[in-house]
């Protein structure tokens, strides 16, 4: 399989604390990659580097061989990297459709084309009925869908989902899982951050486990759950021995 994204020895410190300390891994085109690890492992920092929001101190992120890190989020979006946020961000003075149109305008300058694309994307994400509602009036799970729709409207190659399923009820999370599968079926590669292992592991082909800014291990879900290092990082030494 073709490699879409290469993360190469990425480092980022915040005032002496290394959030990312030499992280390297590849993402293959079309896969769903899980990014897991306890709080403070550096997952969101890594997302910020890949999406161009915060430049790394050293190391590179390459999309299809081209360096995208340190060149700003607008360039990353143009090259096909889209993201959602851990704390939902919506354009609250705008309608749901208008929110998604902002994303669609990344690919066209024509308002009608952007509107058409936005409507199709809302249809796909199951939000078509909410199109003309103000964004602030959506429920939390709907807002998460809106973020996915907005990101998808930029027609990304790679979609970064930051704790998209966290805080949802089991039924809502089920709907979210289905949406992720649908997005993958469209040919979009996905990296998803979750710290609820049982939600993320059935979805992903491989997972990268981060701990204290470093890659602990990379592998298929079945290998990950048996890895004593992972158990130790999550549950502490006592359980690893048991």
């Amino acid at each position: 399989m073709k490699t879409l994204l290469e993360v190469d020895n990425l480092r980022k410190s915040f005032g002496g604390v290394a959030a990312n300390d030499g992280i390297s891994f590849n993402v293959a085109e079309g896969e769903i990659l899980g990014l897991i690890g306890p709080n403070g492992a550096g997952k969101t920092s890594l997302f910020n580097a890949i999406s161009g929001e915060i430049p790394p101190d050293s190391g590179e992120v390459r999309l299809l061989g081209e360096r995208v890190s340190g060149r700003g989020p607008a360039l990353c979006a143009a090259r096909g990297i889209a993201r959602t946020f851990q704390v939902v961000r919506s354009f609250d003075s705008m309608t749901v459709l208008e929110n998604v149109m902002v994303g669609a305008f990344a690919r066209t300058a024509r308002p009608r084309a952007a509107m058409q694309a936005a409507q199709e994307t809302l249809e796909f994400c199951g939000l078509a009925a909410r199109a003309d509602r103000p964004a602030w009036s959506l429920s939390p799970p709907e807002k998460r869908r809106l973020e996915v729709a907005r990101a998808l409207a930029t027609r990304p190659r790679l979609l970064l989902l930051d704790e998209m399923l966290t805080g949802l009820t089991p039924t809502e999370a089920q709907g979210g899982v289905q949406l992720v599968r649908d997005v993958q079926a469209r040919g979009v590669t996905i990296i998803m951050v979750e710290h609820v292992m049982e939600v993320v592991l059935p979805l992903v082909s491989r997972a990268v486990v981060l701990n204290l800014g470093r890659v602990l291990t990379i592998g298929a879900p079945a290998e990950i759950v048996k890895n004593p290092e992972v158990i130790k990082a999550y549950l502490g030494d006592r359980y690893a021995a048991a």
Binding site: S90, S93, M94, V102, F105, A106, P111, A114
Partner: peptide, 22 residues
């Protein structure tokens, strides 16, 4: 126009706007 959408997005949430290529 596209400009108007970009500007309103910048007003509402600059970080989200940036992530969408604005």
């Amino acid at each position: 126009s596209r400009w108007g959408f970009s500007w309103r997005a910048v007003r509402d949430d600059a970080v989200a706007a940036r992530s969408l290529g604005v």
